[in-house]
Nucleic acid binder design. Sequence first.
DNA 1: GAGCTTATTTGACAAATATCAAAGGAAATT
DNA 2: AATTTCCTTTGATATTTGTCAAATAAGCTC
Lengths: 192, 192
Amino acid sequence: MTDFFQTLNQFVRLTPESEAALSAILKPFSLPRGYLLLKEDTTCNYIYYIEKGLTRTFYYKDGKDVTDWISLEKTFACSVVSYITRRPDIRNIELLEDSVLWGIHYNDIEQLYQKYHDIERFGRLVVSDGLVKLQQRFDDLHFATAAERYNKLLDTNPSVIQRVPLGMIASFLGITQETLSRIRAQHTRRKE
Amino acid sequence: MTDFFQTLNQFVRLTPESEAALSAILKPFSLPRGYLLLKEDTTCNYIYYIEKGLTRTFYYKDGKDVTDWISLEKTFACSVVSYITRRPDIRNIELLEDSVLWGIHYNDIEQLYQKYHDIERFGRLVVSDGLVKLQQRFDDLHFATAAERYNKLLDTNPSVIQRVPLGMIASFLGITQETLSRIRAQHTRRKE
DNA sequence: GAGCTTATTTGACAAATATCAAAGGAAATT
DNA sequence: AATTTCCTTTGATATTTGTCAAATAAGCTC
């Protein structure tokens, strides 16, 4: 939980009362690799703070597994569309490693939003940060070649490349795994 | 201004005091087609509500003009990245038609966020809505062919196709204008 | 409405990436 | 250690889309 409040402090400084109220709604999860946090066609009720581990948000498009987002430690994971709109959507979330998470239920945080101005501010800033990150991810793919996409990821999130299977990274980048494998082969050749 | 508060009411119901405070910071703009609302490498200080008209957010990538976002009436336009991070970024915003806008200055709304809980909530909900829309746009392009991208736009925003030049739509979809022109030719042929 | 500018279409060709198929490797399980 | 399963690489080929160049078409301005 310490990690969570450390991350939170990067967004906003809460009053002790708000902090206590927020810590009271955090639910701990300790779950194994492969666990499905969210199943497609259900409504996402939790946003998860990742203390330890790694999650992947994915869906099926024309029968093919497409990775939508990868969340690392000290960030959040959820189906943004479902959590905000309160409707089911196509996304699944799975754990790529054994993980320790803190879940925030939609209804619980809604109540705190109503009651505590500073928690509402926290919410606004978290969503704003998410919006900036998604825009940057979008920019990284817009009119970029397969190699450019991979290099950008290597720049911004090198640990993802160590921890996530190639096929998932490929679909995260909007390319096939064969193409990504060939790009990687080029890379190592260059380094020799 | 009526339009603005009508749109606002879809997000949240403000107290009369908050509404008055918010209306006091709205700045009216009436500007001609072609006007540059935001210039690249500057910080975006305004978010604009579009009462009438149409804006395009764009930047240059490898010397080529890339359309990032198109905003229609009753929606907002700004460089999300720059407005939130308070840093310059690469995006320009131009008017594609003579327009009537209401600008909200970053500093002004920040003050209101501090003072009025319900305006902070409004901010959170606007950003949340923006996040959902960006995610949906992202989904529309992820692993979609050129024709699929165009058809999706035709479904969700047909008016854009009437009002925005083909080259700009093409780059918005992440394809070349020649490819889009050929897709359109296929389309009309099918209808005959 | 002639002339200029800008936007769109079309064609020929090149490049990038996907697809299909198969072979290697690595890791987990018994 | 052997077996199974999953992950990655490689090769051959097909498809899609981009690039370059030129021809039309549509809008604006004087």
